[in-house]
């Protein structure tokens, strides 16, 4: 595995130039941290964060569904925030801290949200599950941080963990098997089971 010193300071300008002589597509360097491990990569500029994780770092827990930001299967957490890794260029993540499903927990040492999905049967085929779980972990943090949603009744008040709030906030994660009600049960469980 490529392991370099953790990159904190990044150069203000990074220029990738085409190498026409070799007829190879332009590349650029990027350094970021994934699940606690520093990586320094030279990538085709077109590489999405999703493809960097899956194809270059072999972290295949993050899934490619639609590849257009419509399904949420590729959801990862970057600097504490969930994003669609398919709609983000890897080279734009220099210095970022990235957490994938593998970084939340592994067999034998599951994250509470992973455990809750098992307990509540929050999946069928499992393909959308890593994205669902990364999204769910971030959703609870967003509610804690007071970020409003479409169903938050009072914009100036603090949102709370309710089933309508969870359904709305999880709408960017599609489950074709339709495990939604169990997914909400799992998230409610992790949040304290009061919703």
């Amino acid at each position: 595995m490529s392991v370099a010193a953790v990159s904190v300071a990044s150069p203000s300008t990074v220029v990738a130039v085409p190498n026409k002589a070799a007829a190879r597509p332009p590349t650029a360097r990027v350094a970021f941290n994934v699940n606690g491990t520093a990586h320094d990569l030279e990538l085709d500029t077109r590489t999405t964060l999703l493809d960097a994780l899956r194809e270059h770092l072999r972290l295949t827990g993050t899934k490619k569904g639609c590849d257009h930001g419509q399904c949420g299967a590729c959801t990862v957490i970057v600097d504490g925030r969930r994003i669609n890794s398919c709609l983000s260029l890897a080279v734009m993540h220099d210095g970022d801290m990235i957490t994938t499903i593998e970084g939340l927990g592994l067999p034998g040492n599951l994250h509470p949200m992973q455990q809750a999905f098992v307990v509540h049967d929050g999946y069928q085929c499992g393909y959308c599950t890593p994205g669902q779980i990364c999204s769910a972990v971030a959703v609870l943090d967003e509610i804690k941080a007071g970020i409003p949603s479409h169903v938050t009744a009072d914009l100036t008040g603090a949102p709370t963990v309710t089933r309508p709030e969870l359904r709305e906030r999880m709408s960017g994660n599609i489950c074709r098997c339709g495990a939604y009600s169990n997914i909400v049960d799992a998230i409610v469980d992790v949040a304290g089971g009061k919703a």
Binding site: G69, I83, L87, V139, S149, L155, G172
Partner: peptide, 27 residues
């Protein structure tokens, strides 16, 4: 999520959370 926007320009906060998904709004 900005307190001033939510208090004084609530229409903007309402419109924003009516659009896209949480993941997309984060980017």
């Amino acid at each position: 999520a900005d307190a001033r926007i939510r208090r004084d320009y609530g229409l903007i906060a309402r419109a924003l959370v009516a659009g896209a998904s949480g993941q997309l709004r984060n980017k």
